[in-house]
Design a protein around this nucleic acid. Structure first.
Lengths: 194, 194, 194, 194
DNA sequence: AATGAATGAGCCTTCATTCAT
DNA sequence: AATGAATGAAGGCTCATTCAT
C-alpha cells in the first residue's frame, strides 16, 4: 500500500515537472529529457511511468477535468441562479485570465486538432461544463429570473467562448478594456437576466 | 518589373506549398524539406526566398490580414447597419466553419503564444476587425437600430469570440445544435438589435 | 527434490517463452522484457534464473543437442545400413524443413560467428552428428552395401550440408523442385549405395 | 558529370565503411554512427546518401551479385565442361573460405529471414548461380563427360551447399580434413564425371 | 536564382542490467 | 524466489540551417 502511494507520488511528480516544462517552452519544444531532468529522474525510468510523451500530455489534459469538476459543483447551486451565475463568471474569468491556463489550453488544443485521443478528452470536459452552465440557465428561466432562451446550451457556449476569449486576449497582450472584465460581465448579464 | 513579378510568384508558390503542409501535418510536424518538396523547389533555393521556417509562417499569418481586409470593407457599409451586421455574421461564420481556417488559426496562435513577432501580427489583424465591427455597432446605435452599449468594442469581441468558438467546435467535432448557426445568430442579434 | 523440480520447470517455462520470441522476432529484436512478458514473469525474477540474455540463447542452443541425440540414436542402428540411412534422410529432411528449425539455426549461427561460447556448442553438436553419420557410412562400407569412400566424414558433411541447404531454401522461399526432397535423396543415395 | 562521379564515390566510400563495420562487429551491433564515423562523414549527411541502415545493407547485398556475375561468366565456358567445373570448384571454394565472405553471408542471411526485400535479393543471385552451374552440368551431360542426372539444378544446389558449408565450417573453426578441400572436390567430381 | 551535400544537435524511445524491497 | 522501479548509454533517424558550386 505504501509502495503504491510512492509510485503515485512519482507519477504526480513527473506530471508536475512536465507541466512546468510545457508552460515554459511549449509541448513541442519540450523534450522528454527536459521532463526527466526537471523531475530529477532518469530518462529510462520516466518510461516506466509513462509510455510516451503524449501519454504525459494526456494525463495533464485529464487533470483539467478536475478543475472543471469544481466549476460544475459551483454551478449546481440552483437556489439563487443569478447569484450563482455571477459567482461563476467571477471564478471562471479569473481562471481564464491565468496565463498558465491559457498557455496550457492552447498547447493542448494545438495537439487536439490532429489527435482524436486528446480532442475527445478536451471535448468531454467542455461538454460537461456547457451542460452544467446550461442547466443553471434553464433553472434561472424556470425561476423567472433569466430571460427565456431558445437554446440554453448555445447561450452557455457563448458565455464560455467570450470568457475564454477575454482571458486569452489578456494573456496575448491585446488591449483589454481598462474596466477589466466588468463590461463583459455586464453585457452577458444584461442579455440573460430579466 | 517582369523579374520582380516572377519572384513574387515563386514566393506565392512556396507559401501555398507551406500552407498545404501546415494544414496537413501541422506547423511543428512540417519540415522545411516537406515544404521544398511540395513546392518542387530545392532546399537551398527555398532559403533564397525565405530566411527561415518561421518567416514562412509569418508570411502566411500576414496573408490572413488580407481576408480580414475584405471583412472590414464589408463592415464599412453603414447605410443599413442591421443588414450589414447580418451579412457579416453570415460571411464570418462561414469562414470560421472552414476546417482549414480553424486549423491554421490554432497553428498560428500556438506559435504566437511564445513569439511576439507572430502574436503582434495576430493582434493587429484582430484589432482591426474589432475596430471595424465596433464601428458598425456604434453607427447602429447612432442610427437608432442597435441598443445602446457601454462598450461597443467589448460587444464586438463577444461576437467574434462566439463565432470563432462556434466554428472551432464544429471542426473539433463537438456536438453542435442541429439548427446550425441560426440560434447563435439570433441570440447575438437579439442582444444587439433594438 | 520437489523444489529443484519446480525451479527446473520455471527455467523450461522461460526457455519456451524465449524460444517463441526468438522465432517470432529474431534474437536481436527480442528484448529481455519481451521474454519476461511472454513467460509471465517479472523482469527481475528472470534474472534470478538466467544471468543474461545470452545465457538464455545458450540454453536454447544446448537444447538442440538433445534433438541431435535422437538422430544419433537412430544412426547407431548398423544392422541394415541402407535402411538406417534412408530413415535418417527422411527424418532429418523433415526436421530441416521446419521453418522454426531453420530460423533458430540462423539466429544461433548469426551469434555464433562472433561468440566462441556459442560456436563451440554449435560445433560440438554438429561434430557428434557428423561422427554418427560417418560411423554409419563406414559400417555400410564394411557391410559391402556402401561404396568405398576416401573420407566418410567428408561425405557425411556433404549429406548434412545439402539437407540443411535444402531445408533453408524451402523456408527462404526459393523455388524448390516439385518432386520435393526425392531428387535430392536419390542423388545422395546413388553416390553412396553400391 | 564530375559532380555525379564524386557522389558515386561518396556512396562507395560509405559502403566500404559500412562493410568494414558489419564484418567487424556484425550488422546489428553496428550503429549508424559507427558507419558515419568510419566513413568520416557526418551522421546527417549519411542520410543524404542512404535513407536507412537497411538500405546500406541492401546495397552491400547487391554488390555480392557482381561477384556472382564473375562466377557465372566462368561457368559459361562449355568448351571443356570438366575443366570448367574443376576451375569453378577451385574458385568458389576459395571464395567460400574467405572469412569476410562467410561472415557477410551470415549477416545478410540473418536479416533475410525476416525481410523479404533482402531475401529476394539473396534468392535472385543464388538462383542465377544455380542456373549457371546447372547449365554447365547439362552441357557436360550432352558432351558425354558428365553422368546423366535426373535434375541438374538439384545437383548444382548440392554442389553449392557443400562448398558453402565447407567454407563456413572452416571459418567457424570446425575440424576440417587436413587434406583441405581436395576430398570434397574428389567426391563431388566422382559423382558427376563419367 | 538554383542545387543538394554537409552539419551535428536534437528527436523519442528501447536496451540489458541492477537493486532495494 | 519474486517484484518492477531505476539507470543511462545507445538505438535509428530528423531537424533547421549553411555552403560550395
Amino acid at each position: 500500500m505504501d509502495k503504491k502511494t510512492a509510485i503515485k507520488a512519482r507519477r504526480a511528480h513527473i506530471i508536475n515537472a512536465a507541466l512546468a516544462c510545457f508552460l515554459e517552452k511549449g509541448y513541442n519544444q519540450t523534450g522528454i529529457r527536459d521532463i526527466a531532468r526537471r523531475a530529477e529522474i532518469s530518462l529510462g525510468n520516466l518510461y516506466n511511468h509513462f509510455p510516451s510523451k503524449k501519454a504525459v500530455l494526456i494525463e495533464i489534459a485529464s487533470m483539467e477535468e478536475e478543475e472543471v469538476e469544481e466549476l460544475i459543483t459551483l454551478l449546481a447551486d440552483y437556489r439563487n441562479p443569478e447569484r450563482t451565475l455571477r459567482r461563476f463568471l467571477k471564478v471562471f474569468t479569473k481562471a481564464c485570465e491565468d496565463p498558465d491556463y491559457v498557455m496550457l489550453f492552447f498547447e493542448i488544443i494545438g495537439e487536439a486538432i490532429r489527435d482524436k485521443e486528446i480532442s475527445d478528452l478536451f471535448i468531454a470536459s467542455h461538454e460537461k461544463l456547457v451542460d452544467a452552465l446550461a442547466g443553471l440557465l434553464f433553472a434561472g428561466q424556470k425561476a423567472g429570473t433569466f430571460h427565456e432562451q431558445t437554446d440554453p446550451r448555445e447561450v452557455a457556449e457563448i458565455i464560455l467562448d467570450s470568457l475564454e476569449g477575454y482571458g486569452a486576449r489578456a494573456v496575448l497582450g491585446m488591449k483589454t478594456p481598462r474596466s477589466g472584465s466588468k463590461v463583459l460581465h455586464d453585457f452577458l448579464l444584461k442579455s440573460i437576466l430579466m
